[in-house]
């Protein structure tokens, strides 16, 4: 059975276990790039007590699958995995994991960053923070849009 490339779950994940599974039995792999997003205790100057992640079941998985397909079309990538947590999280908790296997580091680094940049702007997740002054929805950042947009520019220039 082929392991799912996208998992949305409440449970925590073990990065080294996920990486070991991703590259198991594939001697073509010369590089694994990975990224872990972590819950911080401070956002926009306010202390964050807890954070709750909501998503759109179905569309979430579908949109990330599409982002992985796009990355695999752009770079020489053997496999990729995205794990994203939902539900209530606290500072220090892991939120998201992305790993990419490739023959060489250049493709692995680029594909991993691309997947993360697109996930931030395309995948339907929403964060709600609990601060000292009450709950608030996290606002989208224009810097995230800019990070995703530069890949489109790169494609045009390339």
């Amino acid at each position: 059975m082929v392991a799912a490339r996208v998992r949305v779950q409440e449970a925590d994940f073990d990065a080294s276990h996920e990486i070991a599974r991703l590259r198991a039995g594939d001697p073509r792999v010369g590089a694994v790039a990975s990224f872990i997003g972590v819950c911080r205790d401070l956002n926009e100057g306010d202390a964050v007590a807890t954070m709750t992640l909501e998503h759109y079941p179905g569309m979430t998985e579908r949109s990330i699958e599409r982002i992985i397909d796009e990355a695999m079309g752009r770079w020489q990538v053997f496999d990729a995995l995205v794990v994203h947590r939902v539900g209530q999280l606290e500072p220090l908790d892991q939120i998201v994991f992305v790993a990419v296997t490739s023959a060489h580091r250049g493709d692995a680094f680029a594909a991993c960053e691309f997947i993360m940049d697109y996930l931030k702007t395309q995948a339907p997740f929403w964060k709600r923070e609990q601060t000292a002054t009450g709950p608030r929805w996290v606002a989208a950042r224009s810097s995230d849009d800019a990070a995703a947009a530069r890949w489109a520019e790169a494609a045009i220039k390339g």
């Binding site: 998201v96 931030k120 995948a123 997740f125 606002a139 989208a140």
Partner: peptide, 10 residues
């Protein structure tokens, strides 16, 4: 059809 604010995952 789903309506939602700009996404903030990751």
């Amino acid at each position: 059809v789903a309506f939602f604010p700009p996404v903030t995952g990751g």
